[in-house]
Amino acid sequence: MGFLAILLALLIEQARPLAYDNPVHGGLRAWARSVRRNLDAGETPQGWVAWLLAVAFPTAVAAGVYLLLMQFSVLLAFVWVVAVLYVTLGFRQFSHHFSEIRRALEEGDDESARRKLATWLRVEPTSLPRAELLRQVIEHSVLAAHRHVFGVLICFLAFWLVGLGPAGAVLYRLAEYLSRNWRERLDGTPSPALQHAAARAWRWIDHWPARFTGIGFAIVGNFEEAVASWRGDADRFAVGSDGVVLAATSGAINVRLMRLPEGAPPPEEGDPAARPDPQLAHLGSVVGLVWRSVVLWMLLLALLTLARI
């Protein structure tokens, strides 16, 4: 059931992607906002209680509905799993940004590409050099693929194997959302305690999914370079698990995603910083890397499903 549910959810999402302002995501955002406003008292214990409630309640609902439906109808339980995966998993939640930026770059319209990237990241447009623009597009694309596809898949499978249905997908997506939404704002909210809880919980939850994503990229890309880059230089790419994903990507498609400090000496041969600067062709390499990884994990899931029959 797990393999078919994931496959069907991906196909439906490709044919009919969810809008950003869909009622399900809107309801979860309202829930998280309500929890923050009512429980954020500025103390560490309250920060963890708020995070646990914001994440645990929807996760428990996803598992509870699945277990309840399994008592009456396997078909209804299957429909529930597909529905949950549909709202938590998918390329189309971010891929349209990538496609528009890539099209603008192919047409030579760098200014339009910068505006579209700024819209995606919800920041003010800047005058990025072309190489830096490409680097940021690649970085945000692979991280989005990890957070919207591979991380969700891995957490879903972990909970699925212990009989909790789609609860893992809900847990992962909510933890990732809160790590972004519960950051410091201009009005001073949320409190540092709540920010710390959301960020730390996200680091714990994303630890293994990020490494599985890195393994997948290494297998379908340049294995030796990806593993060497990951093991030796992940911290130089980004803090935490993001560094693992970016380091593996850099080695897998042989592109420099590491920023050199101004005035730094030329990197030595073998250093990840010595790889070629991002080019337009690397965007195609990223697409191929991601889709090959999807095929890899779907094949592994199919084999796991057959082994359990």
Rank of each mutant, 00 (worst) to 15 (best):
Tyr20Thr: 05
Phe156Cys: 10
Ala83Leu: 13
Leu105Asn: 04
Leu39Phe: 10
Arg147Ser: 14
Val286Tyr: 09
Leu89Tyr: 11
Ala273His: 00
Leu306Lys: 03
Ser293Gly: 09
Phe98Arg: 13
Pro58Cys: 03
Ile219Gly: 08
Val290Trp: 12
Pro125Ala: 02
Phe150Gly: 12
Trp208Gly: 12
Glu176Lys: 13
Phe217Ser: 12
Thr44Ala: 07
Glu268Arg: 11
Ala273Gly: 01
Ser229Phe: 06
Asp40Arg: 15
Phe212His: 02
Val290Phe: 09
Leu257Ile: 02
Leu28His: 03
Gly288Ser: 08
Thr44His: 13
Ala19Tyr: 11
Gln195Gly: 15
Ile6Arg: 14
Asp109Arg: 14
Gly243Lys: 04
Phe156Asn: 02
Trp51Pro: 02
Thr189Leu: 07
Ala248Trp: 11
Gly270Trp: 09
Phe212Gln: 08
Glu106Phe: 07
Gln71Met: 05
Ile12Phe: 09
Gly288Phe: 09
Pro267Ala: 00
Asn38Gln: 12
Ala167Gly: 03
Leu117Ala: 08
Ala198Gly: 05
Gly26Gln: 05
Ala281Cys: 00
Pro209Trp: 02
Gly251Cys: 05
Glu184Ile: 15
Val286Ile: 15
Gln136Val: 06
Ala104Lys: 12
Ala210Ile: 10
Thr44Asp: 11
Ala158Gln: 00
Asp109His: 12
His148Pro: 01
Leu289Ala: 11
Arg211Val: 02
Glu111Ile: 10
Ala104Gly: 07
Thr189Tyr: 07
Arg33Leu: 13
Asn181Pro: 00
Arg256Lys: 04
Tyr177Thr: 15
Ile253Ser: 13
Leu194Gln: 10
Gly165Asn: 07
Ala113Asp: 03
Ala175Pro: 07
Ala218Met: 04
Gln14Ala: 15
Leu18Ser: 07
Arg292Phe: 06
Ala15Phe: 09
Phe156Trp: 11
Gln136Arg: 14
Ser99Gln: 15
Leu301Asp: 03
Ile205Pro: 01
Cys155Thr: 06
Cys155Asp: 08
Phe78Leu: 03
Asp271Ile: 06
Phe212Ile: 14
Leu85Tyr: 08
